[in-house]
């Protein structure tokens, strides 16, 4: 697995935990364990995204870190299959 894929997978896993925890918090808004779990993964995600975007470009517009090219337009797009990506 390339470094890009490995890092992206870690971000996807982290985002899944964040989303799943958020959905749980919607119906359990004062669950302390869930709130702590959200915070923990939120901080972890921040580090992962910083590493990813420095090397491989943006995942969101807000990831733009300056420079002379808008990497948003670069492949791979998420639906592109293995071979092309």
């Amino acid at each position: 697995m390339s470094e890009r894929k490995k890092l992206l997978k870690q971000i996807q896993e982290c985002d899944f935990v964040l989303y799943e925890t958020a959905l749980f918090l919607d119906t359990h808004p004062s669950n302390r364990a869930a709130l702590q779990n959200y915070r923990k993964h939120q901080l972890k995600r921040r580090d992962l995204v910083e590493t990813f975007t420095k090397k491989f470009g943006m995942l969101e517009h807000d990831d733009f870190g300056g420079g002379i090219s808008w990497s948003w337009v670069d492949s791979p797009w998420p639906w592109e299959s293995e071979k092309e990506a």
Binding site: L8, K9, I11, Q12, D15, F16, Y19, M58, L59, E60, H61, D62, W72, W77, P78, W79, S81, E82
Partner: peptide
Amino acid sequence: KYDKKLQYPVK
């Protein structure tokens, strides 16, 4: 906001 990745990989 669009996030440029899938929720779960499709390969």
